[in-house]
Structure formats: C-alpha cells, structure tokens
Design a binder for these strands. Structure first.
Lengths: 336, 336
DNA sequence: CTGAAAGCGCTTACAG
DNA sequence: CTGAAAGCGCTTACAG
C-alpha cells in the first residue's frame, strides 16, 4: 500500500543508498541523479517510514509534554506556546495529563521514555517527584525542561515565571487597599503553591495577623471551581466573611472564580465585602463579573521559552541544569 | 544504555527467538525456560523497543485525536473519555489541535498517518474535509471514528449526539416561555452549526418570524467568548435588544457566555430582558451568573463510545461505515 | 559520486 | 518446545 525506499530506487534506477542520501541531503549526489530520485519520490508520493528511521537514528523528532490538568486553561496556553515552536521545527508534540497525581505523572513520563521521545517538558511537576529524585533521574537520560516547579537541589532545567515577585505584588496590592484579614487558598502538591504560601505567611506575620490557609483538592482541574465554592460556603460558618476575612488570595484563577461564585451564593459583594485576587490571568479571569484582578504569567512565552530550551538541549546533548526566569505582571481589574 | 532482547537472551541462556516468545506469549515455551527468561527480563528491567516492534507489526498501539480547539472544555471532556478507554487497553493517545481550520486538520491527520497510528478520532471535523472526500479517503486507509460532524454520503464511522433533538428541545423551551424573537449564534464551518441553523430557521418560519443568524469566528476557541460579546454590543446598535430580540440560541456554551457577558456590559438583565440558551453543558455553564440553561451532550460518553468503536475497528479491520447516536438532555437553569 | 553490505531491535515462518 | 535465518524499512561506514 505504502511505498518504500526500494520502490523509489527502482523507479529512479539507483540504489537505495542513493535514495537515502538525497532524502537526507547528507552526502554529495550528482545533480542529475538527485533530480531523477526527486522525481521518483514525487511520483510515488513517497514518505520515509519514521519508525525505521528512528530505530537507527535514536531520534523520533517528537517530544512529550506532561500537564497536571488540561482543563486549566493555564496549561493549554502554555502548551500552545510549546507547539508553536516545536511545529516550526517539525517536531511532533505529545500531550499527557497527569491529573495532578505523582504516580500518574511518573507513569506518563515512563511512557514517553519507552516511546523514545527526544525530550520532555514538565509543567508544574509534582513536588513528590522532584523530591524523590525521579525527575533528576529522568533528566540524566533525556533532555528535560520543567516549567515552574523549581526545586533547589534537583539538577534539571527550569523555565520559571517569577511567582515570588508576582505573589508579593499581589499581596502588597491587597494590603495597600487596607486589607489585613487575608485568607489564602491553594491546591495540594506543587511548588507554585508552596512558594506562595510561604510568602503569604511572612506578610501576615509582619502585619501581625494569624494566617488562614485553605487547601482545596486538585487545584488544576476545572472542577476546583465548584470545590472552592463549596469550601467557601463551609468557611462562612466558621468565619464572619466580610469582617474576619475581607480578602482572598487564590493561587490560581480557577480557585479565585470559585471564591467569586461562593460570594455570589452568600450574597457577598465583590469587592465591597470581599476582595479577590487570582493568579495566572487565564482568559476566564476576564469573563467573570466582576472581572478578576490577577497576576499575569505570560503563559505563551513560558511555553515558547521552554520549547526553545528543550530544542537546544536535544541538539547539544548538554543535559546540565539551568534556570530561566520570566517576569510576571499584576493586572488590576474589578475584584479588588 | 538500554538493554535489548539480545542482552536478555544471553542472560537467560536462550535464543532471542525464545525471549520474543515469552514476551509475546504467542507460542508455547517450556515453563522452566519461561521463568528463566522472565527473571532475566526483570533483572535487566528490559523493555522491548516499540519502534522495532511496530516496524514489523505495522501496529503502534497508539491512536490520534484531532480537536478543533483545546480551549473549549467540550473537547477536553470528550478527550478524557477517549483516554480512559484507550489507556485501559494500553494504547497511547496523541492529541492534536486543528484550531478549527480545514487545512490544519488535514495536516494533523496526515501527520498521524505518517506516524503510523492505528486509528484516528476526529471530533467535530471540518465540513470542508468531509465534503472534499478527504476524510473518506483516510477512512479507507485506517480506522476512523468521527464524533459529531455527520455527513450523509461519506463512508466513515460516526458517534453522534442527537444534536437535532437537543436543538429542538432548546428551541421549544424558548418558545414555551413566550419567546418569538430569537436570534441564533453560530461559528463557522462544522456540521454541528449547520444542523442547528436549519432547525432554527424551520422553527422561525413556523412562527412567522424573520430569522437572525449571527456567525462568529473560531467558535471552538475560548477567545470566542470575547468575540461574541463584542458582536453582541455591535448588534445592539442594529436591534433593540430586549424587544426586537428577546432570546439567543447559541450553538455552544462559549458563545452563550459571550452573550451573557455582553448583556452585562449593555445593562440587560438575564433572563428578564434577554434569555440565553447554550449547548454542550461544559462546566463553564455552571460558573456563570446566572447559570446557563443548556443542552447536555454527555461528552464523556461520546468519547468513550468513540474509543470503543475505534478499538473494534482496529481489531476487526472492518472499515465499513456505521453510526451511533447518543441522547442529549435539556438542562434548565437560570438564564431562561 | 555511487553501491553492496551490515546493522538498528525486534518478529515469525521454517526446520528440527 | 527451541533456534538459525530472513526480513520490517531505513542509514551509514566501507570500498570503489
């Protein structure tokens, strides 16, 4: 059904060696011969079998991307950035959803390894897999770039957004508005949450207010919106919202929308009774009412930078660890 | 670095043929021998090279999925359904985003073909590629299942939700509420829009009202929310909203949210001034305020059914055309 | 500049 | 039940 290199060779009256050479352009071939081969390729619409090529080259021209949740638009945006770069270089990108679970992330990565992808991008990798050395192990075998999820003693490559600065600006914004009783909402296990929580606690300490940290499940799946809403409603029986808590810092926009929805259910006015600030600046944050104040992470750029770095690593085979940082930006809208 | 079948053979003191046989379990192997080989495999943590296997088997244990836009949660939900089934059968699923363009869809499909995937799922395929015979062509080479996007004379396999029934119920719901001046919002080129538009026009004809059809760009990308909002605002200079138009039927929830946001900007009350009904029942439809009335498509089931059918096709090599239909359900919430 | 041959890591008739 | 050999569709030294 499909033609092979042999068919082309016969058609052009040369050896398969020669055909291979014109396909790859890696050896000199007489102009006339080359043209004959090219004509044959065109005539048969021949496409070299990538399986056979990869078996020899140890290169598949494909990369894997693992995300914690495809329903968080943050990740789809980052993935678009990655795809833009990779496609222009004729790489395929395979996307896999770990659903925010460390064991699943591990399995997804191993699958990619088995499939001989040329490199892997990990977006917001699970803390557990950073700590237990798994990601470092993988990084020894194959180029790896992590987007966010920084860990000090792990030798791999990072492209980070400056979440620290973003968090500080967000917190200071809230404080400048007169808020003291700020609650903090996070998901379970990622560095992005940890770093924000630490900063939050620090600020609260400085103001002399007892921190309130709320952890919701599966922070990167869109279901978290509903969950957060429910959590907020429960919270309203423990705290006097609008008084004991006047503002929420949510670790991502999904959770922030959850808080917003909860406020609506509880008949609390945003931002008059409760101020809300999110993180990421996913499109959803502009679709709410009021629109969300949030911290832009430049998701597209995050993806592009990571892809570029991965390509460099694949080409150089230089697996050493390295870190890039991308600026964040506070976007003040109507929820604060 | 990685072990091959030869290493295992040496370790176990047998031929590679025997090792292959215990891996595949397709020929009898003496128990004792088998155990020795299994021990060797375990010891070396041997994983057969899938590239080499696929080269021979003409099977990659992977399928491709093409979606018009990953940022429409409708598709991510369907994809989850597909993945659930495929993973349980140890298939990899590759996802590719066509961005709702026919040429891009074509390219994505060709990429999959080149990669020797075992089958392809097309979600809401582009009308153009159905009409020009491309999808039928592909369906002759390899198992293909289309989710929605039905076309009469195309021989391929379909899993459809009963969009017709869903549309009727939605329209009748609006009419039963006393609406006559209903406007219709759709995206560009997919069967799902066409079928709904036809039905809409039919109903309008019966009521004796001039239909108003509005087409927005890239209906399956989340940007459509903004676009639709803008379109609505423009529309408000042509029509007296709340009077000349009292209800909107949107072909998907994304557009419905856009209308909702537009109404907010225009200070129109939903549903008092304007009623809005969406389609799909993506989670976003519950996150708005008011919550959207919409038509549930049972996206998860759509994906699962398609995956199951694709597996059957892959195993039977029976490429004949076939159609499954899945029920829809009107979900009445607060926007109507 | 060109070709015959070996080899990538497997599977599968074929023979025993 | 087991193994030697051919072959999947390519690439790449090696020789000319």
């Amino acid at each position: 059904m499909k033609y092979t290199i042999e068919d082309v060779a016969r058609e052009a009256g040369v050896s398969i060696t020669t055909v291979s050479r014109v396909i790859n352009g890696n050896y000199p071939v007489k102009k006339e011969t080359r043209e004959r081969v090219e004509a044959a390729i065109k005539k048969l619409n021949f496409q070299p079998n990538p399986l056979a090529r990869s078996l020899i080259n140890k290169r598949t021209n494909s990369i894997g991307v693992v995300v914690p949740g495809l329903t968080n638009m943050f990740f789809t945006e980052v993935v678009h950035g990655i795809e833009r770069i990779m496609r222009s270089r004729d790489y395929d990108v395979y996307i896999s959803d770990s659903r925010g679970r460390a064991d699943s992330e591990k399995r997804r990565i191993n699958k990619f390894l088995e499939r001989y992808v040329d490199g892997i991008v990990l977006i917001d990798p699970q803390t557990e897999n950073m700590k237990n050395g798994f990601i470092e192990e993988v990084s020894k075998k194959i180029p790896v770039v992590c987007i966010n999820g920084y860990h000090e003693n792990v030798r791999t490559n990072f492209v980070l957004s400056d979440e620290e600065k973003g968090t500080k600006e967000a917190l200071e914004h809230l404080i400048s508005l007169g808020h003291k009783n700020i609650a903090f909402i996070r998901g379970e296990s990622s560095y992005s949450y940890d770093i924000k929580e630490n900063l939050y606690k620090e600020y609260m300490k400085n103001i002399g207010i007892e921190p309130i940290v709320i952890t919701v499940q599966d922070g990167n799946n869109i279901d978290v919106v509903e969950n957060t809403m429910r959590v907020l409603i429960e919270l309203s029986s423990k705290y006097q919202l609008g008084k004991e808590i006047t503002a929420f810092f949510a670790c991502n926009d999904l959770m922030a929308v959850g808080v917003l929805n909860g406020c609506y259910e509880l008949n609390l006015k945003v931002p008059d009774d409760i101020a809300i600030i999110g993180f990421d600046n996913i499109i959803l944050s502009q679709m709410t009412n009021p629109k969300l104040t949030t911290v832009d992470q430049n998701m597209r750029l995050l993806g592009e930078r990571a892809a570029q770095k991965l390509l460099d690593l694949i080409e150089d085979k230089n697996l050493y660890s390295d870190t890039d940082v991308i600026e964040t930006k506070l976007i003040i809208r109507k929820s604060t």
